[in-house]
Simulated assay, not measured.
Amino acid sequence: MSHSVTDSTVLLGHGSGGQMMKRIIDEVFLDAFGSPELLEGNDAGVATLPASGRIAMSTDSFVVSPQFFPGGNIGRLAVCGTVNDVATSGANVRYLSCGFILEEGYPMDKLHQIVQTMAETAHEAGVSIITGDTKVVERGGADGVYINTAGVGEVPAGVALSGANCRPGDVILVSGTLGDHGIAIMSQREGLAFSSTIESDAAPLNHLIADVLSAAPDTRCFRDPTRGGLASTLNEFAQASGVAMEVDEDAVPVRPGVQAACEMLGYDVLQVANEGKMVAVVPAEQADAALSAMRAARYGENAAIIGRVLPLESGARPAVRVRTGWGSTRILDMLVGEQLPRIC
């Protein structure tokens, strides 16, 4: 990777539209991303999609603080977050755009790290970054760097995943341990020390989703439990489908360090953000096949069946319950307010 940009920090001129802007685009972004569509230098990247059929598209903005944390940085987060959002539709994720808002004075070596990480993560996911944008704001106008990414993919014929598809008798799965990302950011931001390093779980899960769909073709829906964690995801499913859901607390995979940190900080781990986990709801008869596919996939070795979909009792509203190890139940509400700001 070339580091021939001579300026040590981002300057206002890098967003000017002139020679300095061309230099940072050529030597930072094009050098790392380098897709044929991007290298053409047009205002829009022209790419191939099916002549007929459906596409899925999503966009997200990333403002995480700090920008570097155990297990990744804002660049990995930006690629994984959008890849996973598009992939939850069952789409074959193909292309990404990326927009950078840079603060004057941001260190150029850190920008190189972020961009290189984005390139490596996109390669891992099998997607191309085909267009982008760069803006520079005055000192104090942003916190170093913000990134927006948008993604697009092809939805195969016959695939129609939705949170409104859940039916009584269905089974709920998660692809791995919960709470890793939120606690990693908290520990880094607050300078908390634990006996072992807690790392963000940020990961592209499009290949895992494809494997699950192949093994369990009648999967109802996928969702990545980011802000609000598993609690928000399951409540959204329950409300969209008009059902109740029950989670077995002892079946939910959580790393001991994450569980200890949540207890110390007063957090419910089921409400803590994740960036490399996937929730799936599948028909009961396909649950074992879906679980095996998750566990065989990269990033899915700790997958587990954690609960079930139930019919609503007469007069009841859609809700999510947690069954504790003691046999009692409690209501699992969506997160109220912001548990930890700027988590992604």
Results as ranks from 00 to 15, higher is better:
324 T>G: 15
201 D>M: 02
245 M>A: 13
161 L>R: 05
263 E>M: 12
64 V>I: 09
173 L>A: 01
149 T>L: 05
144 G>V: 10
59 T>M: 02
267 Y>E: 06
268 D>M: 13
10 V>M: 11
167 R>Y: 03
289 A>N: 09
311 P>L: 14
276 G>K: 05
282 V>Y: 01
49 L>F: 15
72 G>H: 03
208 L>F: 06
267 Y>S: 00
238 A>C: 15
152 V>K: 03
20 M>L: 15
167 R>C: 13
288 D>A: 14
313 E>R: 06
95 Y>T: 01
9 T>C: 12
109 D>E: 11
144 G>L: 09
333 D>W: 06
164 A>S: 15
178 L>I: 12
223 R>S: 07
316 A>T: 09
147 I>H: 01
151 G>P: 04
36 P>S: 09
183 I>A: 07
118 M>Q: 04
169 G>N: 06
265 L>K: 01
141 G>L: 14
44 A>Q: 05
164 A>Q: 07
322 V>L: 08
212 V>W: 01
254 V>W: 03
203 A>G: 03
67 Q>F: 05
259 Q>H: 14
253 P>V: 11
310 L>R: 13
222 F>R: 01
319 A>T: 13
238 A>R: 05
313 E>G: 14
43 D>C: 06
97 S>Y: 10
147 I>W: 01
337 G>Q: 00
106 Y>H: 06
275 E>G: 07
153 G>Y: 06
57 M>L: 15
332 L>D: 07
212 V>L: 00
70 P>L: 08
30 L>F: 05
38 L>F: 12
295 R>A: 07
31 D>E: 12
251 A>H: 06
300 G>K: 03
286 Q>W: 14
130 I>P: 07
339 Q>D: 00
94 R>L: 15
137 V>T: 08
241 S>F: 05
238 A>S: 12
109 D>W: 08
257 G>R: 00
111 L>R: 04
218 D>S: 03
302 N>H: 15
40 E>C: 04
112 H>L: 06
191 G>R: 13
314 S>Q: 14
59 T>Y: 03
261 A>H: 04
144 G>R: 00
335 L>F: 00
251 A>Y: 04
40 E>A: 09
99 G>C: 13
52 S>T: 15
124 E>S: 10
87 A>M: 04
284 A>Q: 11
155 V>Y: 07
165 N>D: 00
66 P>A: 00
122 A>T: 12
71 G>M: 05
9 T>L: 11
145 V>N: 02
47 A>E: 10
49 L>P: 01
256 P>L: 08
22 K>C: 09
121 T>D: 06
48 T>R: 10
318 P>D: 13
224 D>E: 09
121 T>K: 07
328 S>Q: 12
291 L>H: 03
